[in-house]
Each structure stands twice: as C-alpha cells, then as structure tokens.
Computed example of a mutant assay.
Amino acid sequence: MVQEFIARMNSCGGLWNLVEVYWTQFQPLFVNESKKLTQNCVQQLFNIEWSPTGSNNKDQEEATIYLWEGWLMEIQEAGTDISFEDLLVFVTGADHIPPLGFPHPCTITFYDQEPGSRRIPYASTCSLTISLPRGVEEEQEFNDLMNTARKGSLGFGKV
C-alpha cells in the first residue's frame, strides 16, 4: 500500500520525490501538529462585516468588538472555562485550524438586541460566521451571553 501511494504521488509530476527533498515544508500536510490557539491567532481568523461608517450601528458594532476582544483576552488569561478551541468548534465545527486553512475567512456579523429580550450570539458552521449582538454595553453581560451561547451549543442535533 505504501509503495502504491508513493507511485501514485510520483505520477503527479514526481510529487513524492519533492516531498522527500523538501519534507520540512510538507510536514504540516502529513503530520497533525495542531498548536494551541492564541488570542492573536483567533483574531486573525475573522473578518468583520461593519455597517457604514458614521451610522449608529457602526458605533454599536465597535463597542461590541471592544467587548469581544476583552472576552478573548479573558480566555487567553484563563479567566474562563472556555478555550479558543471551544470557540473554534462553536464557529467552524473544527477543533483546530486545518493545515491548509479554512476555505475562506471566518466572519463576524451583528444583530440588534431587541428591548425586553435576550438573544444569545449564534454561529453558522457552514458559512464560518458568528453573529454578535449590537447594543450590549456591559462587559459582564456580553461575557454571559458568549458563555451561554458556547456552553449551550452541544453540537449538531443535540439542542
């Protein structure tokens, strides 16, 4: 089986011969070396879909991102029982970043908190999107919403 694998790899322009010569560059493709995620790594995964500049929504979204970054910092400092890997599972369904990365960047979108109701953040693992609430002003309230959302998501079909 191994010889067949090597022969088929070499049938693609001598790919296996390249792997043997430049094995250190190919190592992440063949060996799972998932490293512990950091706050910086998680922040770089996301693109933010902002409202137009100057709008009330944009101001509220900037406040939400400030709280989001504070929550990520709390995770980094082990101030919560949620890990970055847990967050990644919540948003993408994967517990580590694939060797070649995700097919497209993860996205942060926003929704409005309606007066008198409490909607928790939600994610779509298919589109790699997390939706965060606009208009949350208190750090503890935002942290509670995020922790409730993450802890309440037990996986597909387990609600």
Rank of each mutant, 00 (worst) to 15 (best):
E20H: 01
P121W: 12
Q25H: 12
I82W: 05
R119E: 11
V89N: 00
R119D: 13
L37V: 02
G152P: 08
R150Y: 07
R134P: 02
I65L: 14
D112K: 15
I82R: 08
E74N: 07
E69K: 15
L45M: 09
T24P: 01
G13E: 00
D144Y: 12
Q43I: 09
S11T: 10
E33N: 12
C126N: 08
E61T: 02
V2H: 12
L128P: 05
C126A: 05
P98H: 13
V136G: 01
F102A: 01
L88A: 05
E69F: 08
V21R: 15
E33L: 10
G70Y: 02
L67R: 00
N47D: 14
E74D: 11
K35C: 06
E20D: 10
N147I: 09
V19S: 03
M73R: 14
G13D: 11
E33A: 08
I65P: 06
H104S: 12
M9E: 09
T129P: 08
G93M: 03
E4I: 11
N56E: 14
Q3L: 11
N47F: 08
P103L: 02
C126S: 07
E114N: 09
H104C: 07
P28A: 02
F90V: 02
R8V: 00
Q3I: 07
S131R: 15
G152D: 12
P98K: 09
T129W: 04
N57C: 06
F46R: 05
Y122I: 10
S51A: 15
